[in-house]
Design a protein around this nucleic acid. Structure first.
Lengths: 149, 149
DNA sequence: ATAAACCCTGTACATTAGTATCGAGTCAAG
DNA sequence: CTTGACTCGATACTAATGTACAGGGTTTAT
């Protein structure tokens, strides 16, 4: 049985503002919901799920435009399957790149912590340039750069 | 031997605009570099590395403010080691959360592709609600939500 | 020593992602 | 059937993250 509620209840459940929900609707991130005779928007559970999806994707560095594209993968109308597959495959590459970066990132931070612990719980840490290690690890896409002038 | 260059060369090497570099300097993401007598900024290799770090962190969903915090982990002056360790540990949690989310995300996208392939290269895909699967997987933080009204 | 290409500061403009406010209408609990 | 909380659309404002001049000085290859 679908929960139904007005915009305020949905906003509270999702932890966003009412204005944000209307904003997302205008932007096409949320479908125009059914309305009461009065014009009040009526939401079911699925909109809450979609809002949570949007929130998560945002913290992962996707822009609203990208999130819209991701959501559009579901709405197959008018798109061929091949098209969807291509887009999804491309997104997977994207996601895997992010995962890789984050792993390097984590490793660097762990090194930082390890160096701290090695230095003892008080007194000076060594230079703590573990983040340089991160840099060294993840600069694979490095281009040549302009020469000295 | 450190490469040195003016702001334009650095911008080109990092793939950002000159104005962006000056913007980051104003924001404290890049240190104020040494200058020529003329006032021209002079950059070494380390600034390029830092710029690349910033770019990567941005695509991973960190705001400039958060990136500043991450960079501050390196600048140990005035901070105790314990403090740094705590902050780094917290960041690691953060990063791991993101990795987890991205993995769910990827799984959902892979499911989507698989469903597409099962449906053949042409004709209609099934409903393709693999992203619902993603939702089901990743809604662990779900709160009760307001009741019907 | 000159001209193209570059840099300086300061300020204004743009885009993304919301937030806030207003006046008027609606809901629902007592 | 009133009253406080909610909703509506429209519009304007904000913060974060850049971008684009304008007017004037600098570098450097030739």
């Amino acid at each position: 049985m679908a929960q139904t509620r007005f915009i305020g209840g949905l906003a509270k459940a999702a932890g966003v503002r009412v204005a944000t929900i209307r904003f997302y609707e205008r932007k096409g991130l949320l479908p125009a919901p059914p309305r009461r005779a009065s014009g009040y928007r009526i939401y079911g559970e699925e909109t809450l799920q979609r809002l949570r999806f949007i929130q998560r994707a945002k913290t992962l560095g996707f822009s609203l435009r990208e999130i819209q594209e991701l959501l559009a993968l579901r709405a197959v109308s008018g798109r061929t399957c091949l098209d969807v597959r291509e887009r999804a495959t491309h997104k997977i590459q994207d996601v895997e790149g992010k995962i890789r970066q984050l792993r390097h990132f984590r490793r660097a931070l762990q090194l930082l912590v390890a160096q701290c612990e090695a230095g003892g719980t008080q007194g000076d840490c060594p230079i703590l340039d573990a983040l340089d290690h991160f840099r060294a690890l993840s600069v694979r896409t490095a281009r040549a750069g302009s020469p000295v002038r």
